[in-house]
Simulated assay, not measured.
Amino acid sequence: MGFLDFIFGKNEYLQDAFFGKMLFLKDHKIPDNSYFECRRYFTPIKKDIEIAVTSNNLSVSEEQKVFFKKIEKDFDQFVLKIKPVIEDEFRNWKEDFKIIDFKKEFAADYVTIPNLKNKPIHWEISFNSIHDLNHTFTIMMIDFEVEGIQIDG
């Protein structure tokens, strides 16, 4: 064990058949806030995105994998719900803003997958945009409906 491992603890990883190599980030104060980080191919955009999967132990559930697959499968339906929310927020800066081709103008780059024990299900999906390279657009979802938007940058 190296000095940094002694101070900060050794990183724990899970090699999952679906998500691949996942880094476990344990929250010692609130174990239910612990989660895995990984990168995985996201079919709707045809490239890897970052994923955070909530877990208070060294495993992910089959339900979480099914949830991710549903996000991929129903992505176009989510875009229909997300698009007007982003347009409304963007119009605070640019009055006549309109998204012409969502998939060319916005790219998903991060998804959170909760533990799925609590209902309703709160999760997030974040996008980068060609319209503003300095900001990330995070859509907060409840089940499969848009709850709100947060813009960071």
Rank of each mutant, 00 (worst) to 15 (best):
G2E: 06
G2I: 00
F3M: 12
F3T: 02
L4W: 13
D5T: 00
I7E: 09
K10T: 01
Y13W: 06
L14G: 04
L14W: 05
Q15L: 13
Q15M: 10
Q15Y: 07
D16R: 15
A17R: 13
A17S: 11
F19G: 08
F19L: 03
F19S: 04
G20M: 05
M22I: 12
M22F: 08
L23E: 07
F24P: 07
F24A: 07
L25M: 14
H28S: 09
K29A: 11
K29G: 04
P31T: 13
P31D: 15
P31M: 14
P31A: 13
N33T: 11
Y35T: 12
F36V: 05
E37R: 15
C38K: 11
C38T: 15
C38M: 12
R39E: 11
R40P: 00
Y41R: 11
Y41V: 07
Y41L: 06
T43G: 05
P44H: 03
P44M: 07
I45W: 06
K46I: 14
K47Y: 01
K47S: 04
D48F: 03
I49D: 03
E50T: 11
A52D: 13
A52M: 15
T54F: 12
S55F: 05
S55D: 11
N56H: 09
N57D: 08
S59N: 11
V60K: 13
V60C: 02
E63Y: 01
Q64W: 03
Q64K: 10
K65Y: 01
F67N: 00
K69H: 06
Q77L: 15
V79L: 00
L80I: 13
L80P: 12
K81E: 05
K83W: 10
K83M: 13
P84D: 08
V85P: 02
I86M: 02
E87T: 07
E89R: 14
F90Q: 12
F90D: 03
R91K: 07
N92E: 03
K94Q: 14
K94T: 02
E95S: 10
F97W: 07
K98L: 09
K98G: 05
K98R: 12
I99R: 05
D101F: 14
F102T: 11
E105S: 09
F106K: 06
A107T: 06
A108G: 13
Y110K: 08
P114Q: 06
N115P: 11
K117Y: 04
P120C: 02
P120W: 05
I121R: 01
I121G: 08
W123G: 05
W123K: 03
I125P: 10
S126R: 04
F127V: 09
F127D: 12
D132R: 00
N134L: 02
T136K: 13
T136Y: 13
F137H: 05
M140C: 06
D143K: 02
F144E: 00
F144S: 01
F144R: 02
E145W: 01
E145S: 08
V146R: 08
G148Y: 10
D152E: 12
G153M: 12
